[in-house]
Design a protein around this nucleic acid. Structure first.
Lengths: 255, 255
DNA sequence: TTTTAATGAGTACTATTTACTCAATAAACA
DNA sequence: TGTTTATTGAGTAAATAGTACTCATTAAAA
């Protein structure tokens, strides 16, 4: 669907007042990253998102968006909050009419795009390296990873959305398979620790982290020890998924 | 707004595809209770809920509903999930036309009430005794407390909604001021323990619970010891709200 | 060959949790 | 009126978990 079609007939396919936005998290170079879109005619970035189709539920809409941006299927995806601010999509200093002109279409006063939109927020956890060529959408020109603590200027209420998503991710660390979904299949103990430290926001004792992690039984030694880097080669681990999920049910705890 | 007005012009006041439902919890006789509505023309019960006004945000809508049913203001209220199932408001064996006739109004095929509705779910915690005379709404005839494990037949997707609300409440026990909002101002240690046991779903050791609770510093001895009942008179406690909120930030833990 | 920085493993100490015991007490009972 | 009963307040010992370390090992770099 191109822009003209979307502006004219979008309301036939989509619900005009319900959207889904998706905070897609990745972990790389010991840093939490998020996938953002740079808009064509607005000076700012946003989360990937879009209207909900009339024929789909929110989970499906979020999955579709994730697929469209990353090409990935069957990704860990969680609804975390619904945003309903009255003027949440308003852009300071620009009205919808102007925006229409900037993209070359007419958006009259009764146009369906003028309706108030509530937005169901999701967060997704993806393995960073699997996202090869993230795709922008109709209204955007760049889709790329941004460090979570070096965010660009964000449009709409997306700053608040990201803050809330990160906060939720932190709280869910002991109840959701965060490591399993953010790390590659094989990883070192240090990488796992760095992920926890990044999300918790404070350092952990190396020996105790190691002891506790191994104690939970959620890790499997692969036997490999990747050489090539300086110093002693670390073991490579992978998750014992069954045991991980079982552990989460009673709630792990790292402090 | 009466039924005729609502059916005819409701879409001018309300967003036709966004609603809010509210799981209102109370605690009485050592039992978790929820406030439910019995419908006039449908054989079943539902959560209090309603369309979101065009001029209000979800939090405000939930607050309004809570006020309309219970008469209470400034109640602990938390969004917990948004429900978007395609046929979530469908009633097996009855279509909207029939329903319209049953309440004496005409609901044609293009009527605004036919639109798909997504629903933002909230849960509220109220002090049971403060709810004196819960009020039914336009479509319902009874509004009353039900035991959480003796639920009547529920309409729409409200069984799922309640289950999810209870699950959320359990998970939030250590992060939200659940005791503070569900218990009366003054309460005994046993009552507090019963609340925790009810929500957690398993018994706790009395001595250890007491020791830990007093250790957190969130309780204040009132000095009173209510007499009149059999056996040794227990102390009455109230919450030290500041300390409670502070404790929750780092997350309490009862297992 | 030596140095360096990181890993794997372990240890002593502290704090918390768990599973109990026991005296005190207020109403109910005989 | 004295005794019984159920419940409360308080405390303890043992087991478990968490904290702050040390130290030998090792692979690449100097």
């Amino acid at each position: 669907m191109n822009i003209e079609e979307f502006v004219r007939d979008g309301h036939l396919t989509y619900m005009p007042s319900v959207a889904v936005d998706c905070a897609i998290f990745g972990f790389h170079d010991n840093t939490l990253k998020i996938l953002l879109l740079k808009w064509k005619n607005l000076k700012g970035w946003s989360l990937p998102g879009g209207y909900m189709k009339r024929t789909e539920e929110a989970d499906e809409a979020a999955g579709r968006l994730l697929r469209e941006r990353t090409g990935l299927e069957k990704i860990f995806l969680q609804q975390y909050h619904t945003f309903t601010g009255i003027d949440r999509t308003k852009i300071p200093g620009m009205d919808m009419q102007e925006f229409g002109h900037s993209i070359g279409v007419e958006i009259g006063p009764e146009h369906w795009l003028r309706q108030r939109v509530v937005c169901v927020g999701y967060y997704a956890l993806v393995e960073y390296s699997r996202v090869r060529n993230p795709q922008a959408d109709t209204f955007t020109e760049v889709c790329e990873w941004c460090n979570i603590d070096e965010l660009p200027h964000l449009l709409f209420d997306h700053k608040e959305m990201i803050e809330m998503a990160v906060k939720t991710l932190r709280l869910q660390l002991n109840f959701q398979p965060v490591g399993l979904n953010l790390l590659p299949h094989k990883f070192t103990m240090s990488e796992l620790q760095k992920l926890y430290e990044t999300l918790l926001g404070y350092p952990l004792d190396r020996g105790n982290f190691r002891k506790k992690m191994l104690g939970t039984g959620i890790l499997r030694k692969t036997g490999e020890r990747p050489t090539g880097k300086a110093h002693k080669a670390p073991h490579l681990y992978s998750f014992n998924k069954q045991e991980y999920v079982r552990s989460l049910k009673s709630g792990m705890r790292f402090s």
